[in-house]
């Protein structure tokens, strides 16, 4: 029999070794294989900010799509062929003149992975999670982002079953651009709200 202390010692095994041991035990039970892991990694790697950027560019050029995206992000993603089966419902937060949205998960790291891919390092950091709800303007200044004076920031703390992405405003000077060119302007941070498209930012 294993005591709680022995269990604790096992859990404190360096994570890389513990993971290898877990995989070996699970593989011996037929619960996971290297092929399944590889397939799952390939699927997960395919979800990336370029997916969300396609949605944003379409919304900038097609008012009906924009309305769909705001009403039902999941359907809007599927309409562009982005796989959403098994993903949590996607909510879309529309930036407008005078209103900016910033997404955070103060409890963990909830992120719209189906349309943006793996959450970035900063999104998971304690500093980001602590500061976003309390001083969002000071936080996004770390990316060099400065909003127009008088802009209200709506901070969305993603605590439960939805995942949230920001629909940023189309930058000025892009009249006549096609969808692909517009999509190339949209970065990961723009769809979380730490940056805005077309603004010189130091990272993202």
């Amino acid at each position: 029999m294993t005591t709680p202390r022995e269990t604790q010692a096992l859990l404190e095994t360096p994570a890389e070794a513990l993971f290898a041991a877990l995989l070996a035990v699970l593989a011996a039970k037929g619960m996971v294989s290297e092929a399944e892991l590889a397939a799952r990694m390939a699927e997960t790697d395919a979800a990336a900010p370029a997916q969300g950027a396609r949605m944003v560019a379409r919304a900038w050029t097609d008012p009906a799509y924009r309305a769909l995206m705001i009403a039902d992000g999941t359907q809007a993603a599927e309409a562009l062929g982005i796989p959403m089966r098994g993903a949590p419902p996607l909510g879309v937060l529309e930036n407008r003149p005078g209103r900016h949205h910033l997404v955070v998960c103060t409890l963990c790291s909830c992120y719209p992975r189906a349309v943006l891919g793996y959450p970035p390092f900063w999104f998971k950091s304690a500093a980001y999670r602590a500061r976003a709800v309390r001083d969002p303007a000071g936080l996004i200044a770390e990316w060099g982002t400065v909003l127009a004076p008088g802009t209200e920031i709506v901070v969305v703390d993603s605590t439960a079953d939805y995942r949230w992405m920001v629909l940023p405003q189309r930058p000025p000077g892009t009249a006549g651009w096609d969808e692909a060119a517009l999509a190339s302007l949209v970065r990961e941070g723009d769809m979380i709200g730490v940056t805005v498209p077309g603004m010189g930012a130091k990272a993202g």
Partner: peptide, 16 residues
């Protein structure tokens, strides 16, 4: 962690 004082002065590592 929301709003927790001890992290408010920490910079965010924005690098990829």
């Amino acid at each position: 962690l929301g709003g927790v004082a001890k992290f408010l002065c920490e910079t965010v590592d924005t690098a990829p």
